[in-house]
Amino acid sequence: MMNAIEKQWTRVCAVDDIAPDTGVCALYHGEQVALFRLSGQNDVFAISNHDPFGNANVLSRGIVGSRGDRLFVASPLYKQHFDLLTGECFEDPLVRLKTWSVRVEEGQVLLA
């Protein structure tokens, strides 16, 4: 719980702003964050919106899904898969996207 006090949580949008099984992009301290929500789950995932392969800010517009136990978003440009929890690229584990801590409180999505 100490962390929660130290971390500065900022509201970025309402959960309902994200249609189930899609993503949106939020501006957070000057950075582009892709937020995803899976149907039937209340969790929201936050990774960088920047696709390092296509060099474009588009990941929030990709399709989410699963491979085995891992959840991913597939880049809308060239379909590389990025782990929603760790930001790791399935095709090239050396590529790892920045991730953020997310909390959903009273229907609001908070980032830290």
Binding site: D21, V58, I63, L77
Partner: peptide
């Protein structure tokens, strides 16, 4: 529609053709 939107591929989901810069 809400139940279909997550199924749509890169172009369909915004009813346009995505180019290399998004």
């Amino acid at each position: 529609k809400d139940e279909h939107i997550g199924l749509q591929d890169t172009n369909d989901i915004f009813l346009g053709n995505m180019q290399k810069d998004g």
